[in-house]
């Protein structure tokens, strides 16, 4: 029973945001000692399981080719491609981005998107511009602007999470095989796991995509409501001040 304190060390360590490496190291040693392993046995377990879980870290081998492509403008080219989707409504644009993000992550291109790489410079401004078009070119009330930007970030994150696991060499898939194969002495292939990630990826696209499409209607309704009292001024700034 007392070995469960090791789990507690992990939970507390991560929850109090200690350095994860140290949390893992301390939890490993504590759990080993509580489980009545001798210090030498603990070292041996660290060594043996490190050796048998090396496959988790091999995705590093793709870094040179990704680095080469990034220094030659891979992210910029991805942005150019997305820029061609300019004339859609906010919801449709974000749905398409969600789809592209899932698709590219599923073939191992997790780094071409992300909050700093694509959302801030591309996706959020374009989603906002589309909503402003819907608002007759006026700036959005602050609350709606925040909502559109939040959704831009959300579609990036959902797309990444539920796309990357369809790629067989992503950290989480390799963690599963590394953990299970070294712990339970069995054999799981990354490809099987990647295939089983596809149904969830489809569900994620359907659920999140439907919500993004509904965002268009929400925007329409709320923009109509917030503009209703301001036809006399017809000024976006006035509307914005009123709402904030």
């Amino acid at each position: 029973m007392i070995v469960l304190l090791g789990v507690l060390v992990v939970v507390l360590g991560f929850a109090t945001r200690r350095n994860p490496l140290l949390v893992v190291g301390v939890a490993g040693i504590v759990t080993g000692l509580l489980g009545k392993l001798s210090p030498v046995e603990i070292l041996r377990t660290f060594g043996d399981s490190f050796a048998s879980s090396r496959s988790v870290t091999i995705f590093a081998i793709t870094l040179p080719v990704i680095g080469l492509l990034e220094r030659n403008g891979l992210q910029q080219q991805a942005r150019t491609l997305i820029g061609k989707l300019g004339k859609l409504t906010t919801g449709r644009f974000l749905t398409l981005y969600l789809f592209l993000r899932q698709l590219t992550a599923a073939v191992g291109l997790q780094t071409i998107g992300g909050p700093a790489q694509s959302v801030r410079p591309m996706i959020a401004p374009m989603a906002e511009a589309a909503a402003e078009r819907q608002n007759g070119g006026r700036p959005l009330p602050e609350r709606l602007r925040e909502k559109v930007r939040s959704h831009a970030s959300g579609s990036d994150t959902v797309g990444l999470f539920f796309g990357e696991d369809c790629f067989l060499a992503v950290g989480s898939i390799l963690l599963i095989t590394g953990f299970v194969n070294s712990t339970y002495d069995t054999h799981l292939e990354p490809l099987q796991l990647a295939l089983w990630a596809i149904p969830s990826a489809v569900c994620a696209f359907l659920i999140h995509g439907a919500r993004l499409l509904r965002l268009d209607r929400t925007l329409e309704r709320e923009l109509a409501a917030s503009n209703a009292g301001f036809t006399a001024h017809d000024g976006g700034n006035a509307a914005q001040e009123k709402v904030t």
């Binding site: 490496l21 190291g25 759990t31 489980g35 988790v56």
Partner: peptide, 26 residues
């Protein structure tokens, strides 16, 4: 940085949990 090694170390931790009998307890 070191974050690259974290998944592998979590796999190691899982093996230690198993060795120490955490799995059986839970």
């Amino acid at each position: 940085g070191w974050a690259l090694l974290l998944p592998q170390l979590l796999a190691v931790l899982g093996a230690i949990f198993q060795e120490a009998g955490v799995g059986t307890q839970v």
